[in-house]
Design a protein around this nucleic acid. Sequence first.
DNA 1: CTGAATCCGGTCCGATACTG
DNA 2: CAGTATCGGACCGGATTCAG
Lengths: 135, 135
Amino acid sequence: MRRGEDMASLYVERWNEGAALSTAGTCPVRNVLDKIGDKWSMLLVMTLASGPRRFNQLHREVPDISQKMLTQTLRDLQRDGLVARQVFDTKPPSVEYRLTALGYSLIVPFGQLIEWANENIPRITAARTDFDQAV
Amino acid sequence: MRRGEDMASLYVERWNEGAALSTAGTCPVRNVLDKIGDKWSMLLVMTLASGPRRFNQLHREVPDISQKMLTQTLRDLQRDGLVARQVFDTKPPSVEYRLTALGYSLIVPFGQLIEWANENIPRITAARTDFDQAV
DNA sequence: CTGAATCCGGTCCGATACTG
DNA sequence: CAGTATCGGACCGGATTCAG
């Protein structure tokens, strides 16, 4: 069992093993990660991680997303099986979104990435100013 | 110390603690993760993970990237301090790119995400066909 | 309340040609 | 070999308006 820094070389090995696959036609990994990498998916998944939300509730908690993108992103997440959509036949109608088990399983890798970002923001911004003034 | 599935709730807690920050103006986490989410960054980082590469060497290993995007993405990665660029004054000139320590530290969270994608591609494609035929 | 539909500007990104 | 410059299409995504 590997631990700590050695995990990196493990991931590199796995990556290299699968590299041949990615060159042939459409790489499924890229297909999946492109969706994840869009502007709002991760944000919505992390917001839904605390529990189910209604449409406008999500809109309030993520204020700078447009209604269009909220609808569209939720639809994509639902299509990929990460989010479940439940309609309550009330008046006025209400719709609840919640993470599926699959969606919930994304929180760990997302969390790792977010943690990495938080830890390294100072280094990155420092590198940027260095680079920009060097030019 | 938490382990396994409980890590998820830990990440959710941390996310909620930092949520107030992200609403105010430009969220640094989003700033960083947007770069990660672009089309080529992750691919190049994972390719450079096996060792330093020359420009055209990278071009051959990632055949479907255009020269323009290769140049641009490498520049951005260099600017963020993830990649180091070393020019050898030979004839013809050669330039070598390698991951910095910071760039190397990205491999673990990237690896986690790629592993997640690989494991769950069947579920996602199944969900997609279900969703599409339901419509 | 929960969307759908439309318009439209900005950006991404590929193709091509050219340079030192 | 390692880029730069320019053009042009595609697409993302915001603002607004309309509908059930």
